[in-house]
């Protein structure tokens, strides 16, 4: 079995490795079990984390990528140190069919999500560019930064520097309020380390509720303004 982290770099080449090795391939697993008969199976989220599937490799050799954060950090085990020297293929330099030209920041900056104590995130459920203000108002009442889920950024409702998730910012604030965020795996990876997580969503089956400490099953357009009003009323002066 070959295990790799499910990062944006390794998950790009891992399926190619499986083909080259004649191995089975299972991506972004969150757990693995070996039954008494020695049969291995992997658990992974499907249909945008609405369901889980148990997947069994049918080949002796398996390449699997592991969802980041799926396993708790154990104390490092002292392993016998064996270093294998792997030679670089001689034709690597001559054969440049794929060349890295450089790296660049994806957004313009100006939003400090990683440093924020509190974050209010607008999800697709806010409904449109003109309705993002419902999240912005609550953020301002909470002295929080404004975050966005991927669909909100992809639709151009908020700029990319607001994006929370594995392709945006990984955050772990004291308080994280998700408004109308369904909770894709990528989003959960970016915020599940937050100390207190609040989710407001009309869909009781939304995966965001699986990580929320407080879940409100209701329309965010009713609840968020009510929260904003209460918070502003409490402010001294």
């Amino acid at each position: 079995m070959v295990l790799l982290p499910h990062t944006y770099q390794s998950a790009e080449y891992a399926p190619r490795l499986a083909v080259r090795l004649g191995a089975a391939y299972v991506a972004s697993v969150s757990s693995a079990t070996l039954d008494a008969g020695g049969v291995l199976s992997f658990s992974r989220a499907i249909l945008q984390a609405r369901l889980r599937a148990e997947v069994r490799p049918k080949r002796r050799l398996v390449v699997a990528t592991v969802q980041i954060g799926a396993f708790g950090g154990h104390d490092p085990v002292e392993l016998p140190e064996r270093v294998f020297e792997v030679g670089r293929p001689a034709d690597v330099e001559r054969h440049r069919e794929r060349e890295i030209l450089g790296r660049e920041a994806a957004g313009a900056g100006g939003v400090d999500l990683p440093g924020a104590e509190r974050i209010v995130t607008a999800g697709r459920g806010v409904g449109g560019p003109d309705e993002v203000s419902v999240a912005a108002d609550l953020a301002s009442a909470l002295d929080a930064e404004l975050g966005a889920s991927r669909p909100v950024v992809d639709n151009g409702w908020l700029p990319r520097e607001h994006q929370v998730g594995s392709s945006g910012h990984i955050v772990a604030p004291n308080l994280y309020v998700a408004l109308g965020v369904s909770g894709s795996i990528q989003h959960l990876m970016g915020m599940s380390g937050s100390r207190v997580i609040v989710a407001v969503n009309r869909d009781p089956e939304a995966p965001i509720f699986s990580v929320a400490h407080y879940g409100i099953v209701a329309d965010l357009h009713d609840v968020a303004p009510a929260l904003t009003r209460l918070l502003l009323a409490r402010r001294p002066g």
Binding site: A23, R50, L51, R52, A53, E54, P57, P207
Partner: peptide, 11 residues
Amino acid sequence: AGTETESVSLP
């Protein structure tokens, strides 16, 4: 196929 799905379930 290198894999088969044994079961699906609610999370």
